[in-house]
Design a protein around this nucleic acid. Structure first.
Length: 732
DNA sequence: TAAGCCCATGTTTTT
DNA sequence: CATGGGCTTA
């Protein structure tokens, strides 16, 4: 233990050793906050101040939780079973499973995802006769989720907020909750809200938990919302052994109800609390740190702080102005290959993006160039249709009340149970006040099922049979049974689109394999609904992820494509939240930059293909907020003035044509890179040399200036199409 | 009931 | 562009 503490700096040790009473750790990016948290827990356990299961530590993602467990176990030198370490959601499920009856749930309640929420809201809206175009289901989901973030049940929603949806939102919300009840289901928000309610209404139970958890620690405290705050407050009211860690500059979840106020107010909430500031950054070079600090200094709503680093100045941040998204993708891909050629691993590098959709063009390029990549947090494995179907079967087998699961798979594969049959079932369910499955049985029983009666009977039998097997077989065997008996496997095997069906079958195999690790169906279902990241850490791949999902991670080299006005900062954020939105975008950019340890490559394009056509684009205003001394422009010739021109007012707001040079005229290339040295054109048939592909001959030439492309037949690497301006070609 | 076709429409971030 | 919804037809 001694030598564990010796690897910490003075403020870190202070934080670790302050075990009793409230503690606020203000930890800048890369200052070792995870280290402090894990060492602090290890210290508490080592001193015998609490048993492992008497410490509660809340993290923001499951990944962070896993990492913390590992680090604590490494510090202690043995496994630490039973620790309450996880996300707010997973910890709350754990509590709810212990006392479902208090929360008005059955033990086997389902947890529904955004997809189900959407479908449920759509149903309610249509049923209640609201115009779905004017009031989209998605918006209803969001509104309700925000209510829940604020710990508002329908009766708590303030007057001013209730005007939404033609003044019907509270009524819709009530309806929504009613349906969740009938389905024996919770959405994400419910998981926390129900626990808070449980504690508020049940002082005795709360007392037990207060005594049980001797220490409570919260990571990323700046991103907690009102329910989360209440939960923490309730649990720690008695002993006040609470430690929160956070950085107001990294608050990026306001749109999800996060209240930076929670961290700014902590000292008032817990009078006499100790405050420790961590300001030595161990992650990044001083160039990167300086860029990030200068950027974030433009925010008004913040605590000022001084981060410093002993890592040396390091490489300058590269800024690449490029022609369009494709050229940008090529630059990133080429660069990655070059770095790998020079000894980096793919694992060392990451591409961080403002929006998930930006992965597309990069993906194409990576595939083309055979660069192994993985998209973290994009389309998740568990979001695939076949996986969701399979899980819906499992949910229905596990909990017959789960009507959302019922609807999803009652006619998958097609069994001739269509919309009209479903209508009958819904009516029957409504009449007896039961679930869809009950309604379905009822409809068949009283002869209200019409033509589909026989098919429904078969379906009931199928589910009954599967349920009878549930407890006598393992989850993976049960899933195989489901897929075989339901005809899902056969459906895919008979699919016309062989290739796609094959892929789906393989995904299902993968699912079954994953299920082998679980003791029972409940444990597996919980994992599915709450664990977002199924990252493949084994293989050496490029990580592509949104900035949001990159929180807490670090990489030697980071690429930040798409640094453009409207994209980063995102237009929508500016439109909807104005100055506040801009500040959150800036914090997001701050998070993005501070992920990099040694090298940072920022790029933007003049023309971006989106919504079906090319949009002119200009460099992000954030680039102007980074000191010139930290950056160097790469390529782009005369275009550097697009982002650094002193006063920064070249592009008046509202002047959509501020950049005529980036118009849609294909051949209008006023600021193209001048033909110089390496960029000079090559003659057809000329022999050239490329850093990566080696020797080759020019086969074809098209375009001119920045868009000039050469097709070159390389002797070893085959035929490649390259942009003259980018490819480092020399005459050979 | 199901499949196929056309049109409109909307485009952030996630436990 | 790419997805979803509404409509028509077999």
């Amino acid at each position: 233990m001694e030598n564990i503490l010796s690897s910490l700096n003075a403020p870190q040790i202070e934080a670790v050793e302050h075990t009793d009473g409230p503690l606020l750790v203000l930890a800048g990016a890369g200052t070792g906050k995870t280290k402090v948290l894990t060492t602090r827990i290890a210290h508490i356990l080592y001193q015998g101040l609490a048993q492992p299961n008497q410490v509660m530590a809340v993290t923001f993602t499951n990944k962070a939780a896993r990492e913390m467990v590992e680090r604590i176990q490494a510090l202690m030198g043995r496994p630490m079973p039973g620790m309450w370490l996880g996300t707010f959601h997973s910890l709350c499920v754990r509590i709810l499973r212990k006392h479902p009856e208090f929360a008005g749930l059955n033990r086997d309640f389902s947890i529904i995802d955004g997809d189900d929420q959407n479908r449920l809201c759509k149903q309610i809206l249509t049923e209640k006769g609201l115009d779905i175009k004017k009031w989209p289901a998605r918006q209803m989901v969001n509104t309700i989720s925000r209510f829940k973030d604020n710990a508002w049940y329908p009766s708590d929603v303030p007057e001013t907020e209730g005007r939404n949806f033609d003044g019907k939102i509270i009524y819709l919300y009530e309806e929504y909750q009613k349906r969740l009840g009938i389905n024996n289901a919770c959405d994400f928000g419910d998981l926390l809200l129900k626990v808070v309610k449980l504690f508020k209404e049940n002082a005795e139970l709360l007392g037990k938990y207060q005594n049980w958890f001797k220490y409570v620690l919260v990571d990323e405290y700046q991103d907690t919302n009102a329910v989360q705050y209440m939960l923490i407050r309730l649990l720690t009211m008695a002993h006040k052994n609470i430690c929160v860690v956070g950085d107001d500059d990294q608050s990026i979840y306001a749109w999800r109800g996060a209240q930076v106020g929670n961290i700014l107010r902590f000292e008032r909430d817990f009078p006499g609390c100790k405050v420790v500031k961590l300001e030595q950054n161990y992650r990044s070079t001083s160039n990167i740190l300086k860029a990030a600090s200068s950027l974030i200094a433009n925010n008004k709503e913040r605590h000022s702080k001084t981060l410093w680093s002993e890592q040396g100045e390091g490489a300058k941040i590269e800024v690449h102005p490029l022609w369009d998204g494709k050229e940008e993708a090529r630059m990133v891909a080429d660069r990655i290959e070059r770095e790998v050629g020079e000894g980096k691993t793919y694992h060392d590098m990451a591409v961080l993006l403002r929006t998930a959709a930006q992965t597309r063009s990069l993906e194409e390029m990576f595939v083309k160039m055979h660069i192994p990549y993985t998209i973290v947090g994009g389309l998740k494995f568990y979001d695939r249709k076949e996986i969701k179907d399979a899980i819906a079967y499992l949910r229905l087998v596990n909990s017959e009340k789960d009507g959302l699961a019922f609807e999803r798979i009652v006619n998958v594969p097609k069994r001739g149970i269509g919309e009209s049959a479903l209508d009958n079932i819904r009516t029957a369910a409504g009449t007896i006040g039961g679930s869809l499955m009950e309604g379905s049985r009822e409809a068949v029983r009283v002869g209200a099922a019409g033509r589909a009666a026989g098919k429904l009977k078969d379906f009931h039998q199928l589910i009954d049979y599967l349920r009878s097997k549930k407890d006598e077989t393992t989850p993976d065997r049960l899933m195989e049974l489901i897929l075989d008996q339901s005809g899902y496997h056969d459906m895919l095997r008979g699919d016309k689109n062989k290739e796609e069906a094959q892929g789906r079958l393989e995904n299902l195999k993968e699912l079954i394999r994953a299920m082998q690790e679980y003791e029972d169906v409940e444990a597996f279902l919980e994992h599915v609904s709450l664990v977002m990241d199924n990252e493949d850490l084994e293989t050496d791949m490029i990580r592509m992820t949104t900035v949001h999902a990159a929180k807490g991670l670090e990489f030697n080299m980071v690429f930040l494509p798409g640094f453009e006005e409207g994209l980063f900062p995102h237009q929508r954020s500016l439109n909807e939240e104005g100055e506040k939105g801009l500040e959150e975008e800036r914090r997001l950019a701050y998070v993005a930059i501070t992920r990099a340890k040694k090298e940072l490559v920022i790029s933007y394009a003049s023309s971006r293909f989106m919504y079906g056509h090319f949009e002119p684009a200009t460099a992000s205003r954030f680039l102007e907020e980074i000191p010139a001394s930290c950056t160097k422009q790469v390529g782009g010739g005369g275009r550097q003035n697009t982002w650094r021109a002193g006063s920064g007012s070249r592009y008046d707001q509202g002047d959509k044509y501020g950049t005529p040079l980036f118009g849609r005229e294909k051949d209008y290339v006023p600021n193209a890179k001048p033909m110089d040295k390496a960029g000079a054109s090559f003659a057809l048939g000329e022999r050239v040399f490329h850093q990566k592909f080696g020797y080759g001959r020019v086969k074809r030439q098209e375009g001119s200036g920045a868009t000039e492309k050469l097709t070159i037949a390389f002797e070893k690497a085959g035929e490649k199409k390259l942009l003259t301006a980018l490819a480092k070609l020399t005459k050979a």
